[in-house]
């Protein structure tokens, strides 16, 4: 068990190494002169030259990569061009809102999607199924910011129930914290629920067609017990897998949602960095988000054993 978990853990190292190489190489692989693009239109030749030295573009690729990766391994993601502060420090400062938003949206997405998918599968072809799946297709199609604005218009501007935007740290009280988090988390949660609901439905339909489900019903177990204990547990692996995959969507969604609701998290940091052409910050944020994605999917892989005893690590 332990050995296999460790082996799975080691397997993430090459993936992370490739991610680091890709993120770093972009500076060198992109056509044109990145220093000139990053310096902006009003930059003088001297400005561009200075930026080239700051980014290390004047040094050979391998030398610069060695320095950079050495730093990354020690938690040094470089220095922001705009604020001259360590990128790691900027990221750590912005971590709380992003983590709060991500977890809240994930909880909302799962608690909408899984029951919806289960009911849709149980009554496949029926009215509930059709309505649920229409909502799922809508969820794929409506961009998260459009849904955010609709929710803001209804609940914040018209009904005045919730704040239009902003973020209150959890340390300032759980009430205000939740109040500010509801709208962004619900918008993001609803969008992410679409994919999870669809997979839940497809997998559940497959499981519900199995003989042991019929047997369980035939011996007189309640529908509820069969659906949850017998079917859902056996459908868990694909559902949990897609939750891991949807984490990538969630990250994109976080960047957008933080912009709409003016939440000072990592997404906002990214957007500010785009406007300021602060490439080291963009690079650092990509690395952190990708690492999180890889780790989340690693944890999900390791969790398979909980749902299916046949899978052992």
């Amino acid at each position: 068990m332990l050995v296999l978990s460790l082996r799975r853990l080691l397997a993430t190292i090459p993936v992370m190494a490739i991610v680091a190489i890709i993120v770093f190489s972009l500076l060198y692989l992109t056509p044109g002169d990145p220093a000139a693009v990053l310096a902006g239109e009003q930059a003088t030749a001297a400005d561009i030259e200075r930026l080239r030295v700051t980014l290390g573009l004047d040094q050979p690729f391998l030398v610069r990569f060695g320095q950079w990766i050495g730093g990354v391994l020690q938690g040094d993601l470089g220095t922001s061009i705009f604020s001259q502060r360590p990128v790691m420090e900027l990221i750590v400062q912005r971590l709380e809102p992003t983590i709060a938003l991500t977890i809240a949206s994930l909880i909302i997405a799962v608690s909408i999607a899984v029951p919806l998918g289960v009911i849709a599968a149980w009554r496949a072809g029926g009215l509930v199924d059709r309505v649920a799946m229409s909502f799922a297709v809508l969820g794929f199609s409506v961009p998260v910011f459009v849904l955010s604005y609709i929710l803001i218009a209804v609940f914040a501007v018209n009904l005045k129930l919730l704040p239009v935007q902003g973020y209150v740290p959890i340390a300032y009280g759980i009430g205000p914290f939740l109040k500010h988090l509801i709208l962004p988390a619900v918008s993001l949660g609803i969008i992410n629920a679409a994919l999870i609901a669809r997979i839940t439905r497809t997998t559940m339909i497959e499981v519900l067609n199995q003989d042991y489900i019929r047997a369980a019903r035939a011996k007189g177990l309640s529908v509820r017990r069969v659906l949850i204990r017998h079917a859902l547990k056996n459908a868990a692996v694909p559902i949990v897998t897609v939750i891991g995959i949807s984490f990538a969507l969630l990250i994109s969604g976080v960047v957008v949602t933080e912009t709409v609701f003016n939440i000072p998290g990592l997404g906002r940091l990214t957007v500010d960095a785009i406007l300021r052409r602060d490439y080291p910050v963009i690079q650092g944020v990509i690395l952190i988000f990708s690492a999180t994605y890889v780790v989340v999917n690693l944890l999900i892989d390791l969790s398979y054993g909980l749902f299916d005893p046949r899978i052992k690590y």
């Binding site: 992370m16 190489i21 972009l26 056509p31 990145p34 693009v37 990509i286 988000f289």
Partner: peptide, 24 residues
Amino acid sequence: MRVMDGLMAIPSILLAVALISLTG
């Protein structure tokens, strides 16, 4: 396939953001 695994681990929006900020 290793390169593809790496690419897939980078959220597509962020990859695009990086590429566009470097190329204009």
